[in-house]
């Protein structure tokens, strides 16, 4: 009985990963591909880790499987969030079917700020340029 549960968990997890890979190939732009990976592949990894814990029910295996699950759950959305912000700022082309772009206002504001800082630099000269660079750095880390 137990081996049936383990087998079903293993096959379901690998099928979810296959769904993520098919999504990466078929979906039209980088945001939709990210949507496919961060959810389907994480669910696949979690199911397979549950299978390995059911197969070897020991403390070490359980703790390590739980660690991997926690890392995947906590870090996958953060990484996808940062990559999505950067690709929005890079103006990566998007596919059809989008109805709104909630980051558009902020992107406009940031580009306006950067343009304003650059015009200030040119009037101040060399030392002002150095300060402007540092200011840009600070904005950068704050936004991340």
């Amino acid at each position: 009985m137990m081996e049936w549960i383990i087998s079903i968990l293993l096959m379901t997890g690998s099928l979810f990963m296959l769904v993520a890979a098919i999504g990466v190939v078929k979906l039209p732009d980088v945001y939709m591909r990210m949507h496919a990976i961060t959810k389907a592949a994480s669910l696949g990894a979690i199911l397979m880790l549950a299978a390995v814990f059911l197969r070897y029910p020991q403390w070490v295996v359980g703790i390590e499987a739980l660690m991997v699950v926690m890392f995947v759950i906590f870090t996958s959305p953060i990484g996808a969030h940062m990559i999505a912000r950067v690709s929005h700022r890079m103006k990566v082309p998007i596919g059809d079917g989008y109805v709104m772009d909630e980051l558009q206002d902020e992107a406009d504001r940031q580009s306006a700020e950067r343009a304003g800082g650059k015009s200030g630099e040119t009037t101040e000269g060399q030392s002002g340029k150095k300060d402007g660079g540092k200011g840009g750095e600070k904005i950068d880390t704050g936004k991340l």
Partner: peptide, 25 residues
């Protein structure tokens, strides 16, 4: 684009975790 390739890195990491688990089994 470059973000597409970075996203694939995430996918490949999940797939390698799956392969390791299958090898453990």
């Amino acid at each position: 684009s470059l973000p597409d390739r970075i996203v694939v890195m995430d996918l490949v990491a999940s797939l390698v975790i799956g392969l390791i688990i299958t090898y453990i089994m």
